[in-house]
């Protein structure tokens, strides 16, 4: 007779469920511009500049947001209101809570680039992940050579992190530009595209690493400009944007030519993804 006893599963499956978010408190909420806001959360884990978190609001959904800080005591997220989740998140205030899971992805290879001169170019809300990079540089002062920065925004009112910008101006070489100045405000920056000021600048590609983050159009033009200036593809690190859902390299939405943006990116060295622009 076959044994009638049912075979129980060998071990209890109570693993750490990778889909579960955790609750964090908002320590600070700051409206940065008409459609951007910065929230500081009491997240105490470690993360790297360039990585991202899945921000989740029950009933609305999840959105991937890149980190805008480098600290072991808190986490800053700069959020732009473009989709359902981000628009709902804009209504939060200090003291509210937020679900998070992460950090995910590969950030900027900061340690690998010790000793290099850095060229940092950001456009609009693309400056946010670079803010994390700059906090990292501040904490590792002597690790890098010259730091040159080019940040562009739409208008003077859209300039993000105004307090930080003042500091960056004194500490590093910051070039600021706005696309237009409709309110004719008195400003101390160029009125042109960020790509124009990069093109005009004298840049030496030697021992240099380039970080860039911003709208795809900006990055596309910049890649051409940098190439003309003698930069190699393997010197350029750029942050890509894709639809990321699971953030664990399974769900497939963020795949670029077999690479998962959430796992192998979102920061890629340009030569790794150069030929895959059609994907």
């Amino acid at each position: 007779m076959p044994r009638t006893k049912r075979v129980e599963p060998e071990k209890e499956i109570k693993p750490c469920n990778p889909y579960l978010p955790k609750l964090y408190k908002i320590l600070k909420y700051n409206k940065e511009s008409s459609d951007c806001f910065l929230i500081r959360l009491d997240y105490k884990g470690s993360y790297e500049p360039g990585q991202f978190f899945q921000v989740s609001l029950p009933g609305i959904g999840e959105a991937p947001i890149s980190v805008a800080s480098y600290s072991s005591t808190h986490l800053d997220l700069n959020i732009r209101e473009v989709g359902n989740v981000t628009k709902a998140a804009a209504k939060l205030k200090k003291g509210d809570t937020l679900y998070l899971r992460g950090p995910y992805g590969k950030g900027y290879p900061m340690e690998k680039l010790f000793g290099k001169n850095l060229l940092i170019i950001g456009g609009g809300s693309g400056v946010a992940p670079l803010k994390g990079v700059l906090s990292y540089i501040d904490k590792h002062k002597d690790a890098y050579g010259n730091v040159e920065m080019f940040f562009g925004f739409r208008a003077p009112e859209d300039i993000l992190f105004k307090e930080d910008v003042k500091q960056w101006k004194s500490k590093h070489n910051l070039h600021l530009s706005v696309d237009k100045n409709p309110s004719k405000k008195k400003i101390s920056c160029d009125v042109c595209f960020v790509t124009n000021i990069v093109e005009k600048a004298k840049l030496n590609p030697e021992n240099q690493a380039v970080f860039m983050c911003g709208p795809p159009v900006m990055m596309k033009i910049l890649l051409g400009i940098l190439k003309n200036k003698g930069f190699q593809d393997n010197q350029i690190y750029l942050s890509t944007e894709r639809m990321m859902q699971c953030a664990m390299g399974v769900c497939g939405h963020c795949m670029i030519h077999g690479k998962y943006t959430c796992l192998d990116g979102p920061v890629f060295r340009y030569d790794e993804i150069k030929d895959y622009t059609y994907d």
Partner: peptide, 16 residues
């Protein structure tokens, strides 16, 4: 194996 993640709320809006 690709999948979507999404949220569904009940009519009383208290359960997601």
């Amino acid at each position: 194996y690709c999948f979507d993640l999404y949220e569904e709320t009940n009519a009383k809006l208290d359960k997601v």
